[in-house]
């Protein structure tokens, strides 16, 4: 690993001051992504600012009936929090589908949003990669792209965002609270992560001198009709090839509201609100689900090794909506298909 300076700011203002003062500094929270990338020479900060002891570990109810989650709450604690399990089980489930219990014990809520892609070439500093070295080219488009995206890609980059938790946060329409030198602001979840476009080096709309302080969940948790399905190369401890978070509000057998987000298929958790709206007022049947899945994947495009993801995603959407409608969410331990 490269040499770097290390500091531990005393409070949030101090952390913001330190990051703003040093363009080559980075925060470290759980460390599970940044240290991994530093060992591969992908990240080369000259200074690590250890925020892991800042008091951002609360999980509290908000005045508007939602919840506010501190940026340093470990993923494991969040997924087992009684109010999260009861009111936002889709979030608890998606978190448990990711990584391993050891990693979830370390990984922070804020760090999870900012974890970087698992594209093989992003990790391999001997190869061109526009995300790692802007302008060098994309090795994945004509390379080994089994893990890569099928929606929202650009000529510059076809990487996916690897998080499971974020797919659930997209469905729940969470808000990201951040602080920077100019004060605090709130970013809607759909505006947090970016599509690659011509600037794949920018994963998110967080400024380099800003810190995530909290995630806010709106009151609606879809605790009755939801599921999180994750399909991967092995049963556990592997990144998603395709994942789907589905949440429904039903009136009898009719869909009042449908929300769907896909993981493993794009540079950000993928939602298509127009397609979701076509489900409103429809009967909760396989036919409705299939036509939504077809519409959602209509513009999807594979790059060779990942062509299979298009059909896999289509079927996963149908299954997820079926599970959500039946109130039989996927178990994250036995993975039995229901």
């Amino acid at each position: 690993m490269i040499n770097f300076q290390y500091s531990r700011p005393g409070d949030i203002a101090d952390a913001v001051r330190q990051i703003a003062a040093d363009p080559r500094a980075k925060f470290i929270a759980g460390g599970t992504n940044i240290l991994d990338l530093m060992k591969y020479d992908v990240e080369r900060p000259a200074h690590l600012i250890d925020i892991s002891r800042l008091p951002l570990t609360g999980v509290e109810e908000t005045a508007s009936g939602g919840m506010r989650i501190g940026a340093l709450v470990p993923n494991s604690d969040l997924s087992y929090h009684p109010l999260i399990e009861a009111r936002y089980p889709i979030l608890a489930s998606a978190i448990r589908a990711g990584a391993s219990q050891q990693l979830r014990n370390m990984a922070s809520t804020g760090g999870n949003l900012l974890q970087r892609t698992r594209c093989l070439y992003f990790y391999d500093v001997a190869t061109p990669c526009n995300k790692r070295a802007p302008g060098s080219g994309c090795s994945a488009i004509d390379g080994i792209n089994r893990q890569n995206a099928i929606l929202g890609t650009s000529d510059a980059c076809i990487a996916t965002h690897p998080s499971d938790m974020c797919v659930a946060l997209a469905v729940l329409e969470a808000k990201v609270h951040v602080a920077g030198p100019a004060g605090e602001r709130v970013i809607a979840f759909e505006d947090f992560h970016r599509l690659p476009g011509k600037t794949p080096e920018r994963d998110t709309n967080l400024a380099p001198n800003e810190i995530i302080t909290a995630i806010e969940l709106p009151a609606r948790g879809f605790a009755k009709n939801y599921t999180y399905i994750k399909i991967r190369d092995r049963h556990s401890y592997a990144f998603a090839l395709v994942s789907v978070a589905a949440a429904l509000e039903l009136e009898g057998k009719t869909i009042k509201e449908a929300r769907l987000a896909l993981g493993g298929v794009a540079h950000k958790p993928w939602r298509n609100k127009e397609v979701e709206a076509t489900l409103n007022g429809q009967p909760a049947t396989r036919e409705s689900f299939r036509s939504a899945a077809d519409a959602l994947l209509r513009d999807a495009k594979g790059f060779g090794h990942n062509d299979f993801k298009v059909e896999l995603a289509r079927r996963a959407v149908v299954r997820a909506l079926t599970q959500a409608a039946q109130g039989t969410p996927q178990s994250q331990s036995n993975k039995k298909i229901v």
């Binding site: 290390y6 599970t32 991994d36 250890d50």
Partner: peptide
């Protein structure tokens, strides 16, 4: 962080010691 061979308990919780800096 991919194998678990380095698992230890820190303040009673299991973590991967390879992805943790001692100074933290």
């Amino acid at each position: 962080g991919q194998c678990g061979a380095c698992t230890v308990l820190v303040d009673g919780r299991r973590i991967n010691s390879c992805l943790t800096l001692a100074v933290m």
